[in-house]
Design a protein around this nucleic acid. Structure first.
Lengths: 245, 245
DNA sequence: TGCGGAATTTCGGCATACCTAAATTTACAA
DNA sequence: TTGTAAATTTAGGTATGCCGAAATTCCGCA
């Protein structure tokens, strides 16, 4: 696939490791453009720092990343292409497992994590077609198109909403199965209308009003968990305006 | 999963290589009980003989195979269990890809070969359920059940049928995409009724009558290809009797 | 019976991707 | 400005699976 890979016989970008590194580097910058440090990479990948140094050298050799010693890593356009391909695979797999095979949204992450290295482009495209070419996965994350472009909706972290603000759940981190099950139990899912009521004194649970019917629930979300829920408020996104709840 | 694996910390039977070796060893004995030599294994797996020696030692350490130096390899009951698990995964994947995602039966083999090392038991079981728990794959190969048992239908190689004998296509080797496409084009598939008419002089193409309507076709199958098509003649198989064409 | 070729095993090596421990570099703070 | 702690890289090592080349073993046939 990658020209860089072709140019360097012996090097290949189809190793699961390379794919994981590139995907994780991308993930760090998907919603904010923070520099990706070696230590951050090591922590996320659960490998030693020295392993990261080695693999990043390999990414550079493959033309997938730029890296100056003692500096953060960045993807090249080629690396970004590969990353978006992997993200597409991951999110389409998750969507497929949920919609076609009855998985819960808390069960799909690990399965997709393994399969994404193995599925062919053909299979991914057929799954996409079967699903009607969805543009977001069960957690609300946008699915890159086959040509390697992605549209990021402008959503806000729940905890940053001012009191009284309304919106719809636009995205929920898929990293925490416990949170996903909790939200399922509370009947909060993608597009659920919520209103921010405030938080209990001294940093207690966030309180949000759920549903247009006006049923009030208290969500037992610490800051940590609240940071995993995004809400679309204004809802402007690539020219399409989403209404408030 | 495997007790042997549990008993030997550090050894694991979940490597793709181990799975491949065990599956190939099983394949050699699925339809005939021939001894599996190291050289035969090496040829099938496309690795050097010395690699086979090494990996077979590992299989023995894992309790998956028995092997005395300079003798053929055999699976232990534990190895057979793993092999049947892999075969189940492979054949269910093929069936799923054909029935649910529109793959041709000539396209599924390689895809399944990769995915079988990655799919979880959960995913396999859900695919099986979605398919109504099929008992054979698109090529007619029996699918082992989740408890690790398999029923082998008694079918005969096409070329061994006497002239005039009738039957139904029961199984077609999935190893040759060209043959599969050819048969598709000729509208010959699983369960197609065929009658053996004979072969052209001097070992030419096999001639078979296809379909109960009596349309006569000449199949351009050399002995090599004919050996890849099996026909159910008498049709007795585990107490269920299949009628002739 | 013994000899030769084929099958098998042993041996030393290579690539990937990981590790720990020991340098090294960087950046901030006194 | 310099020292020190944190981040990063280097160095040396491990496990897996593969290889080719060189022994070794086996078996049939003369």
């Amino acid at each position: 696939m990658s020209p860089a890979a072709r140019n360097s016989p012996g090097l290949s970008s189809d190793s699961a490791s390379v794919q994981d590194y590139v995907k994780v580097i991308y993930a760090f910058t998907e919603w904010q453009d923070k520099p990706v440090t070696m230590t951050a990479l090591a922590a996320r990948l659960k490998v030693a720092n020295s392993s990261v140094t080695e693999m990043v050298r390999k990414l550079v050799d493959l033309g997938l990343a730029n890296h100056k010693p003692y500096n953060p890593v960045e993807l090249t356009p080629e690396g970004l292409r590969l990353a978006l391909l992997m993200v597409r695979r991951h999110r389409l797999l998750e969507t497929y497992l949920v919609h076609e095979l009855g998985y819960g949204w808390d069960e799909v992450h690990n399965e997709a994590e393994l399969l994404e290295h193995t599925v062919s482009d053909t299979l991914v495209d057929r799954m996409s077609a079967r699903l009607g070419h969805p543009d977001r996965d069960p957690h609300g994350d946008p699915i890159p198109s086959a040509d390697g472009t992605i549209e990021l909706p402008a959503a806000h972290v729940l905890s940053t909403l001012d009191e009284g603000h309304q919106g719809r759940v636009a995205r929920i981190s898929d990293a925490n199965p416990h949170l996903l099950r909790y939200l399922s139990d509370e009947e909060i899912r993608l597009d659920t209308a919520v209103t921010m009521l405030g938080r209990k004194p001294f940093g207690g649970a966030l309180t949000v009003q759920v549903g247009s019917g006006g049923r009030v629930r208290e969500l037992d979300l610490g800051d940590e968990l609240a940071a995993s829920v995004w809400v679309m408020t204004e809802g402007r996104h690539e020219g399409c305006t989403l209404e408030k709840s």
